[in-house]
Design a binder for these strands. Structure first.
Lengths: 118, 118
DNA sequence: TAGACTGTGTACTACATAGTACACATAATG
DNA sequence: CATTATGTGTACTATGTAGTACACAGTCTA
């Protein structure tokens, strides 16, 4: 039941629209700096998801996690990519390790690293 | 002193060449399925690094870690990208957490996850 | 009911990516 | 010394990415 990028954005925008009429395709498009017809096509999956920069602006305007939005677009934030590319073997290892861990284990791991003495 | 992708590949290939004359630009290019002139340009940094697929074949032929090669090209293996995109918030968090950890801490972390009970 | 605003269709485009094709001079080899 | 192999220069190209520009019909509003 993988939500597509377009559906996700449309739903998010329409939810916002219920309480704020300025969240129309046209106005959101203008705010993030693209043509309304383009955003319309993106939302309906008629074209591929936008660039990383555009997705991030969309994340700001719709007040949602850009990493999630990027992930739905099959992309990865440049800053994360850089962190990985600085120590590829180490981080690649780690990511492959956690692939099969359940969510709660990863959460625990993140927490321990944050306030543990590593 | 960041080694460039081209320099790294050229050095690797020339090292191999010392003990195996078949590691010429031409023959390696043929083995990985690209034009010799293209590989030549790649090695001299005259063009951007090749695609992920080509880099991986190069990694096989030169018997070197593809993740490192990809990283030097500023790219990230598709399989890693997929792992991240499946749980973007969780994994993004983790990666940002480990950004400032020293290598040995990350190594320890990987080891603990591997044989710990997570 | 006129004007503004809405979503969307069609057509087009600039730039990047990831190479190919071939020619050429030089170096190595049998 | 003829041929084979080698590295590289020049020119070209197919496909993908990330959109723009504008028109149009329907809807809402003052």
């Amino acid at each position: 039941m993988d939500t597509s990028f377009g559906d996700y954005v449309r739903t998010l925008r329409e939810e916002r629209r219920e309480s704020d009429r300025s969240f129309s395709v046209r106005q959101v498009a203008t705010r993030i700096g693209v043509e309304p017809s383009y955003l319309s096509k993106v939302e309906r999956g008629q074209v591929a998801p936008p660039s990383e920069a555009t997705i991030k602006r969309l994340g700001e305007v719709l007040d949602t996690d850009p990493d999630v939005l990027l992930a739905l677009a099959g992309k990865l934030s440049t800053d994360l990519k850089e962190i990985i590319c600085k120590r590829p073997q180490l981080v690649a290892d780690l990511i492959r390790q956690i692939r099969d861990l359940p969510d709660h284990a990863v959460v625990k791991l993140v927490r321990e690293v944050r306030d543990g003495n590593w």
